[in-house]
Computed example of a mutant assay.
Amino acid sequence: MDPAFLIGVVLAFGALVAMITMEGASIEALLIPAPMILVLGSTIGVGIASHTLRDTVVAVKSLGRMVRGPRMTPEAVIPFLVGYAEKARSDGLLSLEQELDSAPDPFTRQALQALADGTDAEDLRLMLDDEVTATTARNRVAAKFFSSLGGYAPTIGIVGTVVSLTHVLEKLDEPDHLGPMIAAAFVATLWGLLSANFIWNPIAGRLNRIGAVELERMMLVTEGTLAIQAGSAPHRLQERLEALSSVKPSAKRTQKAEQSIEDML
């Protein structure tokens, strides 16, 4: 598990609490249920309205992966692929079927099964590239959903403040209560900005980063699987994968994947 998200959020809210305490303000004054319900509830509502129900389900399911972090680093899959290459050279591609249960992730398991089934190189690359494109599309949908929440939240906070100020104007004949009422009116704006920059945008950014790590790992598996099928020597395969893991995916392949995703969306 990668605790970066939890550490970052706790640090951000901790700094906010420290500021409030040092200013001599009251934390309870910011925890007003009405504006919090409006901002958080309406933000999620308009986020759902601006996407399909399937997009919402994908985004909600991605929260667990977002908290856990990447399944494994791209470099961690290299020893597995080198081991598969050694086994394939000594016992043949069919023997890789014995490694399915110990595969580090479903994508690698799918690639091994295709090798054991004797899939030809062109069909194998097409199958793996399609899976990479589909996974990248799901990751992008989830990140875009939470990014949209980060865009809506500040505006909805302003809406809440306007509604509260309208109520304040109805109480101009009670000057003793105007100060607290005006202060409470701006709590909605605060929660709009707070939720956008402390919750929604960090979630979107983390999902984008996890998706990039996953894409790099899947591309290493793709290239490694094709090299194993071609009979590449294990030490050559390791050198090549280590070189690939130290650079970003080629612009051509990245552009191709992004174009495919845009067509799907």
Score class of each variant (00 low, 15 high):
G205Y: 14
L194M: 12
I228C: 11
L215E: 07
A196C: 13
M19F: 14
D123A: 13
V141P: 05
L94D: 04
P35Y: 13
T56P: 04
I203S: 05
I261D: 00
E28T: 15
E242T: 11
R240M: 11
G211T: 10
A188Y: 08
V247P: 05
M66E: 06
A25F: 14
Q255V: 05
T119Y: 10
G64R: 11
L244G: 00
L169Y: 15
E262A: 12
I44P: 15
G231E: 02
L100M: 07
R71P: 09
A227Q: 06
T166E: 02
S42K: 05
I20Y: 04
E131K: 10
L63P: 15
L96H: 04
E86G: 08
G83F: 01
G14A: 02
G150I: 01
T222I: 02
S195H: 10
I228N: 04
E242S: 07
F80H: 07
V187F: 08
V132W: 02
K61F: 08
I228L: 12
T161L: 05
T225G: 02
A134Y: 03
V39N: 05
A103H: 14
F145N: 01
S246C: 03
E170H: 14
S50A: 12
S195A: 13
D101W: 06
V77A: 00
E258N: 07
Q98G: 08
L11I: 06
K171I: 08
E216Q: 14
H167W: 15
D173Y: 11
N197R: 07
T52Q: 05
V58D: 01
R125P: 12
T189M: 10
I199R: 10
P180N: 08
T56A: 12
S245R: 01
M72E: 03
A233I: 10
G151F: 09
V46I: 08
N197S: 11
M181F: 11
M1N: 05
A76S: 11
V168S: 08
A85C: 08
Q229P: 15
N208I: 10
R125F: 09
V187M: 09
L81R: 14
L220R: 06
R209M: 10
A183L: 03
N197M: 13
G83H: 09
E174T: 15
L38G: 13
S95E: 03
I37C: 10
R54W: 14
T73C: 09
P104H: 13
R68F: 14
E239N: 10
I228T: 09
P175C: 05
V57M: 07
Q113I: 00
A134W: 04
P249Q: 00
T52H: 03
L30M: 12
L38V: 09
D117I: 05
G47P: 09
T155S: 14
A212R: 12
P106Q: 01
T108F: 01
Y152L: 07
L265W: 07
R206F: 11
T189Q: 11
A85N: 00
